[in-house]
């Protein structure tokens, strides 16, 4: 029993230390996970870590949270998963809360308002950058290009949830029809071998 709590605390503490480096996406964690979890604790090997990150991208949610939860689960089951998830979330929760609270405290200051006039435009640029980055891995042929093109005007009329479901459905239908018609599907890249992966986690 005592052993279990010790392991759970170690899992929590390891991710607690790694968490603040996840500036701009979960992939920044990989080198530290290698160091702390593979080399120091020997909980997993490098191959398993790569596999966890590949799997994390195919599940909704942030890569940092998903991969930590997966790794925690491998080490300590459901309790380990929860310990890892809390370890990775608590530090960034506190940091973002502190920043948000200080912003709300002084947001009436004219200088801060002036700063945010410019920052808001930079945020639009970041979103455009995110779109370009993700398009590079998402748009692989004419069909995917058409889905992207049709998706933008459609979003003025349907809720994002509906659009996501429609996108997934279109994907399944297209792949099914192409198979029926005898088109060879292109072999997809293994996301684990492709660090510039689709989710745009680098941003």
């Amino acid at each position: 029993m005592k052993e279990l709590w010790k392991t759970l605390f170690q899992i929590f503490w390891t991710f607690f230390k790694i968490s603040p480096v996840t500036f701009g996406g979960g992939f920044a964690m990989i080198p530290l996970i290698e160091k702390e979890i593979v080399e120091k604790r020997k909980w997993l090997d490098s191959e398993e870590v790569a596999d966890v990150f590949a799997l994390s991208q195919s599940i909704p949610g942030a890569v940092a949270i998903n991969s930590a939860t997966f790794i925690g689960h491998r080490i300590g089951g459901v309790k380990g998963a929860l310990a890892a998830m809390m370890g990775v979330s608590v530090p960034t929760f506190l940091i973002v809360l502190a920043l948000g609270a200080s912003y709300l405290f002084i947001h009436d200051h004219p200088k801060l308002e002036a700063a945010f006039v410019s920052i808001r435009v930079t945020i639009v640029a970041i979103i455009v950058y995110a779109a370009i980055k993700i398009a590079k891995t998402a748009i692989v042929d004419k069909t995917t290009f058409c889905i992207m093109l049709a998706g933008v005007p459609a979003l003025f009329f349907v809720h994002p949830i509906v659009s996501i479901l429609l996108g997934a459905l279109t994907g399944v239908l297209v792949v099914f029809i192409k198979k029926k018609m005898g088109y060879q599907q292109k072999k997809k890249n293994d996301p684990a071998a492709n660090p510039d992966y689709f989710m745009g986690a680098g941003i």
């Binding site: 979103i127 779109a131 992207m148 998706g151 429609l166 994907g171 689709f198 745009g200």
Partner: peptide
């Protein structure tokens, strides 16, 4: 197959956000 259709739609979502 789901991701084949989902990825371009996610791109549309981000363009729409922009």
């Amino acid at each position: 197959a789901i991701f084949y259709g989902l990825k371009p739609l996610v791109t549309s979502l981000i363009i729409f956000a922009a």
